[in-house]
């Protein structure tokens, strides 16, 4: 069964703007794919639908076989706990340490103190920032901040990892490192969907690429350098 399934999904905002038009695709559990397209093509909207920040206007969105359209508002937080999200602006909180930032999804889900400590350190270790746990994220470099964001996105071992322009303001070498990190999570069975317009980087990864154009799925397939 596919982990993510978009079934003729459309999203029209209240302003009348049509962000997605009848988009359909499937992703299997443990699959990794890139979502690309010009800005305004609908990448962010697609991710927002997956995070239940927005609801579709028509069509069905199935996660692990369950239709999200039928999920009541009160169950939304519990759905979000199965999803990890990496933001372009990383959305870290500067009023607390790196450790506390990464611990947030666990605190919210009600993990015990001991559990939190173990999992946070494991997550920080996986992004190579274990020695920074007591720092304030504001003191870290852009690449390090993004890695803290990734650690926070995976600390609760989500089934799905979403990333919105995770390499937006990073240099090519750092971007490659970040992508390699995502690949590692895919290797342990996480379904990873990365929205990015960094064509060069994506082409180097030899992975499935879905290209949106003005809200429609223009291309879906594996690209080897060509494109």
């Amino acid at each position: 069964m596919s982990m993510i399934r978009f079934d003729n999904l459309s999203k029209r905002y209240e302003s009348g703007y049509e962000a997605l038009r009848s988009v359909s695709f499937e992703m299997d559990a443990g699959e990794m794919a890139f979502l690309t397209g010009h800005s305004g093509a609908g990448k962010s909207t697609l991710l927002k639908l997956l995070m239940l920040i927005e609801r579709p206007t028509s069509g069905n969105l199935l996660i692990n076989g369950k239709n999200l359209n039928r999920l009541p508002h009160s169950k939304v937080p519990f759905y979000r706990r199965q999803v990890g999200v990496v933001f372009q602006n990383h959305q870290l909180l500067f009023d607390r340490s790196v450790y506390d930032n990464v611990a947030l999804p666990l605190q919210v889900a009600g993990y015990s103190h001991g559990d939190i400590g173990r999992r946070v350190r494991a997550a920080l270790n996986s992004v190579g920032l274990l020695d920074r746990e007591k720092h304030n994220p504001i003191a870290l470099s852009g690449g390090e901040q993004q890695r803290v964001g990734i650690a926070r996105a995976v600390v609760h071992k989500p089934k799905i990892l979403l990333a919105d322009e995770p390499t937006g303001n990073l240099d090519p070498q750092l971007s490659t490192e970040i992508m390699a990190l995502f690949k590692r999570f895919q290797d342990v069975g996480v379904t990873v969907l990365v929205a990015s317009h960094d064509i060069n980087l994506i082409n180097r990864m030899n992975m499935r690429i879905m290209r949106l154009n003005q809200g429609e799925m223009e291309q879906d397939g594996i690209s080897y350098g060509g494109y």
């Binding site: 995070m51 920040i53 009160s74 937080p77 519990f78 759905y79 979000r80 706990r81 999200v85 959305q91 909180l93 947030l104 999804p105 919210v108 889900a109 926070r152 609760h156």
Partner: peptide, 9 residues
């Protein structure tokens, strides 16, 4: 952020 990582109301 708390809402995005699954914090309940």
């Amino acid at each position: 952020v708390v809402k995005l990582v699954g914090g309940t109301d």
